[in-house]
Design a protein around this nucleic acid. Structure first.
Lengths: 223, 223
DNA sequence: GCATTTTATAATGCATTCATTATACATTTG
DNA sequence: CAAATGTATAATGAATGCATTATAAAATGC
């Protein structure tokens, strides 16, 4: 219990708003004054303001001159930006793992996540699949010893999250995507860095183009 | 004059502190309470606090529980992190330019910067060289149409800036580095994406290992 | 002397207050 | 009626005040 979690209003506000955005409880495009956010959260403007500043730095919110804060929508263009970066960074991070001689045991949490993805697919539970998928990528990233890389990629995932969830049930590549996780792990264990990089990149490229295609086709997530 | 620069205290504080950190007027490791920063800047704690929050998000400053804000030092480890990321992102961005069929004219500002680097070298003015070098990389990045990429790389450059300046006069690779800029530009114009990527990566790898070597050798920028 | 508790100090987290100013709306003018 | 001007309102930017609490210093007990 000594988790050192001295909850502060700023943190509460930050977390509450972030969760609400992720889950679409506060929809993209929603705009409100600082005072409104504050009232809603039952605190004064000050902590809310500071939380909003952080959320703005993370690209989830935009503060507009005299009209408060606006929950940023994710457009196709944004997703393209995000995936272009992920397609570069994540494969490289994974390839580095291959070089480091990772044991199968160390990858066990990843294998676990992948297993969950498989069973989620079997039971047609895409949300659970998505959660495990995210976990896979994040755990893999956490094994990288580059804190800046971790934080940045995490922030990109956060930004992309809503769009991913919206497109989830329209995707046809989930099975393929899951299978690739196994391949990537195998090549990491075998220390084949180039193969890991290529595979991971392909993995991201596929899901990226699938998601972008869906967004474009249905013109989803506009505002 | 309609530069739309409604200066606000938060912005003033942000800029002032950032500039002071970059230029080492406030040295790495310096720590002071919010109140001290506020006094020094001639304003109240509130705007300073908000500026510090932003600077913390950019990795230039760290806010510590009950002892104010501390200017983050850059350790060898940090530089390694930063350059590992740059070595991945920048070559990719440059390679994308090659694909886009850029004309020589469009690269003129880059050529200009490189010329300045050459003359700075001839006159043994490493600081001027460094400024032009930074400009080269930033302009190249600005040609990428990925705003998130731009901002992130810019923030990494900001973080690395002090360490770069400190090692500047000890580096022996400036001439080589400058020469590589010309090569990179040539390959961009020729549309040889792979060559651009490889060259740029090598370019970063070289300067990175040079800087890291110096930092390690002289144990610079410790605190 | 050394460890532990008490007290004092200082710094922050947050609420409140106030002045400034952007924006919308109403009014006037051509 | 359109454009311009004036005015009211609302929202923010910033200062201030205060309660809370971490840290250091002092005092106490062993």
């Amino acid at each position: 219990m000594k988790t050192n979690q001295k909850s502060t209003r700023v943190k509460d506000a930050y977390t509450a708003i972030k969760v609400a955005i992720r889950s679409n409880q506060i929809p993209a495009g929603f705009q409100a004054t600082e005072a409104e956010f504050a009232t809603r959260l039952g605190m004064s403007r000050t902590p809310v303001r500071e939380a909003l500043i952080r959320l703005e730095a993370e690209g989830l919110v935009e503060m507009i001159q005299r009209r408060g804060a606006r929950v940023l929508p994710i457009r196709t263009e944004d997703m393209r930006e995000i995936y272009d970066i992920l397609m570069t960074l994540e494969p490289e991070a994974a390839a580095n793992l291959a070089v480091r001689n990772i044991s199968q045991a160390q990858l066990e949490p990843l294998a676990q996540a992948t297993t969950e993805m498989e069973s989620a697919l079997a039971q047609d539970e895409p949300e659970i699949w998505a959660e495990a998928d995210d976990r896979f990528h994040m755990m893999l990233l956490d094994m990288s010893d580059n804190r800046r890389l971790r934080n940045f990629v995490r922030s990109l995932h956060d930004q992309a999250h809503r769009a991913r969830m919206i497109t989830l049930r329209l995707r046809s590549d989930l099975t393929q995507s899951t299978r690739e996780h196994r391949e990537i792990m195998r090549h990491i264990i075998d220390g084949e860095a180039d193969a890991v990089r290529a595979l991971y990149r392909q993995h991201r490229a596929r899901s990226s183009s699938e998601i972008l295609r869906i967004l474009d086709t249905y013109r989803l997530v506009p505002l």
